[in-house]
Computed example of a mutant assay.
Amino acid sequence: MINRFSVGPAHAEIAMLQWGESGKPPALLLHGTGFVADVWDEVARELASTYTVYALDRRGHGASHKPDVYHFLDFAEDVCRVLDALGLRDVYGIGHSAGATDLLLATKLLPGRFERLFVMEPTIMDPRAARSGGLSEESLLQVQGALRRRAEFDNADAVFERYRTSPTFADWTETSLRAYVRHGFVTLDNGRVRLCCTPEIEAAMLRPIYEAMTQVYVGDVRGNPFTALAEIDCPVRVTTAAKSWPIYKEMAARAVSLIPRVSTLVFKGAGHCVAQEEPAAVVDAVREFAR
């Protein structure tokens, strides 16, 4: 059974899920860009025998708030608000892609609150090798490509049929894909369904992500947050997936070079969305790292 609730004020609510009974060691799951907390369901149900498992819809996604700002530190601050609101300590943080980055940066904002981190292909830049000049024309086109994503469909079944054959979702389990279709879209008054993370929101998120990928991210008035990775005070396992794109492996290598207490793992039979493609393998790996 999943408990749905939210934390934070009305204008900045963070939608939360909980699997399992309270009182067990806490685990917090963070999804990647464009997705929702529910895509963790198969992983979370298994982990709930050992942990009180929480997941959140990251800002701009699902039922959470949709602000105008999507810098890396804003997401990390949302994680900290969740930890404070729920009084969580000794947290096992488990994250994917940009959600993994949220966890890594939150450890600097709330030191001592995480017991360990399991991060799957985080979005990372190496501040020691920062470049100037901003995004290239090619990268800008990639960011703007999100604006061409189809946002509305006749119904949820139409979304599922469309996504089932998409390369992004082709290897997802049916359970994971149906969870995304059900909770990543909102039903409109006319019965049609629309993405919660609209193309405009996704493009706003992707700009800093591509800036980090290409080593040109400079942050905002708070500076470049990636310098904090050298100060992470808990064990971290950085994972890659054999079938994912080279840039994800490159960013994982940057993370490994920056984080003090780090180890690595390769998922040999999966792509970037390993938790939705091979949930049992992720559960086994998460449990093994805890041992």
Results as ranks from 00 to 15, higher is better:
Ala156Asp: 14
Cys80Met: 14
Gln18Gly: 04
Ala37Met: 03
Gly23Tyr: 13
Val143Tyr: 06
Met205Cys: 04
Ala156Glu: 15
Ala158Ser: 11
Val238Ala: 08
Ala55Asp: 02
Ile124Gln: 00
Asp74Phe: 13
Ala241Tyr: 11
Lys66Cys: 06
Ala63Asp: 11
Ala270Tyr: 02
Val256Thr: 12
Thr240Phe: 02
His11Ile: 06
Arg237Ile: 13
Val159Asp: 02
Trp19Val: 03
Trp19His: 02
His11Phe: 10
Ala106Pro: 06
Phe35Pro: 00
Val181Cys: 07
Ala158Gln: 10
Leu104Ala: 03
Thr168Cys: 06
Leu117Trp: 12
Glu250Thr: 15
Gln276His: 08
Met120Asp: 06
Glu121Met: 13
His183Ala: 07
Arg222Ser: 09
Glu121His: 05
Val262Ser: 01
Val256Tyr: 07
Arg164Lys: 13
Ala12Pro: 03
Ala203Phe: 01
Thr187Gln: 15
Gly269Ala: 07
Ala44Phe: 00
Phe267Tyr: 15
Ala204Asp: 03
Glu277Phe: 09
Val283Trp: 07
Lys108Thr: 14
Pro246Thr: 15
Arg182Asp: 13
Pro167Cys: 12
Ala129Tyr: 01
Asn190Tyr: 15
Phe153Met: 04
Gln18Arg: 14
Ala170Met: 11
Val53Tyr: 00
Gln142Ala: 09
Ala212Pro: 08
Lys243Trp: 06
Arg182Glu: 15
Phe289Pro: 09
Gln144Ile: 08
Ala281Thr: 12
Lys66Ser: 08
Glu21Met: 10
Arg45Trp: 01
Phe35Lys: 03
Thr227Tyr: 09
Val39Ala: 02
Leu56Tyr: 06
Val221Trp: 07
Phe75Arg: 03
Cys197Ser: 00
Pro67Gln: 09
Leu147Phe: 12
Asp102Glu: 15
Ile2Val: 13
Ala76His: 09
Thr165Ala: 08
Phe267Asp: 04
Tyr51Ile: 07
Lys249Val: 08
Arg291Lys: 12
Glu42Gln: 08
Arg178Gln: 13
Glu121Leu: 14
Met120Phe: 09
His65Ala: 12
Ser139Ala: 15
Glu278Lys: 06
Ser64Gln: 05
Arg287Cys: 08
Gln215Pro: 05
Thr50Phe: 11
Thr123Leu: 01
Arg45Tyr: 01
Gln18Cys: 08
Phe160Asp: 07
Ser263Trp: 10
Thr173Tyr: 02
Lys243Cys: 09
Val274Gln: 08
Arg128Glu: 15
Lys243Val: 03
His96Ala: 11
Cys273Ser: 13
Ile232Cys: 06
Leu229Cys: 03
Pro26Gly: 14
Val266Met: 04
Phe267Val: 04
Glu77Phe: 07
Phe289Thr: 11
Ile247Glu: 09
Glu174Thr: 14
Gly271Ile: 14
Asp57Arg: 06
Leu109Asp: 05
Thr101Trp: 02
Glu174Ile: 12
Ala156Trp: 13
Ala253Arg: 11
Gln142Phe: 08
Val79Ser: 05
Arg148Lys: 15
Ala151His: 10
Leu195Trp: 03
Thr264Ile: 05
His183Val: 03
Gly219Arg: 01
